[in-house]
Write a protein that binds this DNA or RNA. Structure first.
Lengths: 205, 205
DNA sequence: TCACCAAGTCACCTGTAAGTGACATTTTTT
DNA sequence: AAAAAATGTCACTTACAGGTGACTTGGTGA
């Protein structure tokens, strides 16, 4: 029985992450975390407080909602089509790999609380950045500007949904969202759609 | 204390629907239903069985996952663009109005069980019908055919996600998904995107 | 060395959900 | 009218979650 506060905290965080990845947030509880960590639950209360406090600390520890800009390091930033595609597909691919971030997204759909709102606010500011730069660069009519916002909302939402849904279903609208090959198809479609969208945006109306 | 089995069953169904609409599926329990219905829980066990049996019976009662074809009664079915738009926006609008169906969708994202799989299978067959007819009508190359599947997957998923997300957040990617005017914008974007997509589909090679 | 505090353990309380057995009362059947 | 079946009530067990108080043990500084 070694006594090591930091070690114990780490055990608690590890257990938290493991349980979130496995069962999501809605099944998470103090008892479960304590059991998984092999630690008495009193220590969780002492070090973190109630469950929301633990979650807050856990969230602050990791980097679960990346800046989309991180995905476009090695592509031509002046090419809006390529940039858009890279950001969208990069985000989807990130989510597909990172199960905890995925569960955060799932949680956001179910519950509204201080934490989910904070996370969403960060992401909202990220999301608007891309559409703003598209609108600025292309000097669009107001109708087309609206289309940029709502189309990108639909596309990014679609990718979110497909990633989340792939946990509970294999085929969606004829696409095998559980496999890499299915996601290649989705990327193909995404590219096609983005091209089509910019074609129409840039067409002189 | 009237004795009326059918009346009691109805009370139980009503309570079930009310609780689902309010709190979703993951918070649903026998005790809560019994309390809400003002009925002893023993009767639930006697008439329906365990919770999944109750839910199954409840689902069989109502019509919560409509056939998309229902939305296109009064539009030209030979016009693929119009038909696609009508189906997509009709489905989104339906979901926005029907809170129980919405909660079923939310449930599907969280849990995989006999019921959610059954429901999803029905919808999957509905969804594939539209894309099949598009592919047949336009005689597309295989690459474009893939795009049809995956693009429609992304679009319909995007609408699902936005409807679900609107319960827990107001602004998404610059669009106010909690208001009707925001949904008008989304429909505008949807129309724009579908047009752009068909333009590119129909362009030679 | 001793005293003190932090780290960890244990036992307990409360509340609530799931599920069941036994009973009482009303309705239906014979 | 008596028996049988159905409807509804009550009380109970089991299990488990959240949460707290009191204790023990180890490390550290005076």
């Amino acid at each position: 029985m070694e006594r090591n506060k930091e070690e114990t905290k780490k055990k608690i965080f590890d257990a938290t992450g493991k349980l979130i990845a496995k069962n999501g947030f809605h099944a998470l509880g103090i008892n479960a975390v304590a059991r998984e960590a092999g630690v008495d639950k009193v220590l969780i209360y002492r070090y973190f407080g109630k469950l929301p406090d633990l979650l807050k600390a856990f969230m602050d520890e990791g980097n679960f909602w990346p800046d989309p800009e991180d995905f476009i390091t090695d592509c031509d930033k002046t090419n809006l089509r390529e940039t858009s595609f890279t950001i969208f597909s990069g985000y989807a691919s990130f989510l597909r790999k990172n199960s905890i971030s995925r569960e955060i997204f799932r949680w956001e759909i179910i519950e509204r609380n201080e934490l989910t709102e904070m996370i969403a606010a960060v992401r909202e500011s990220h999301g608007v950045r891309l559409t703003e730069s598209i609108k600025k660069t292309l000097e669009l009519s107001s109708e087309k500007a609206i289309a940029v916002d709502s189309v990108s909302a639909i596309i990014i939402s679609g990718l979110y949904y497909l990633v989340l849904r792939s946990k509970t279903v294999d085929m969606f609208s004829g696409v095998d969202i559980s496999s890499d090959s299915g996601w290649n198809e989705i990327n193909t479609g995404l590219k096609f759609m983005i091209d089509a969208f910019f074609d129409k945006l840039e067409a002189k109306s």
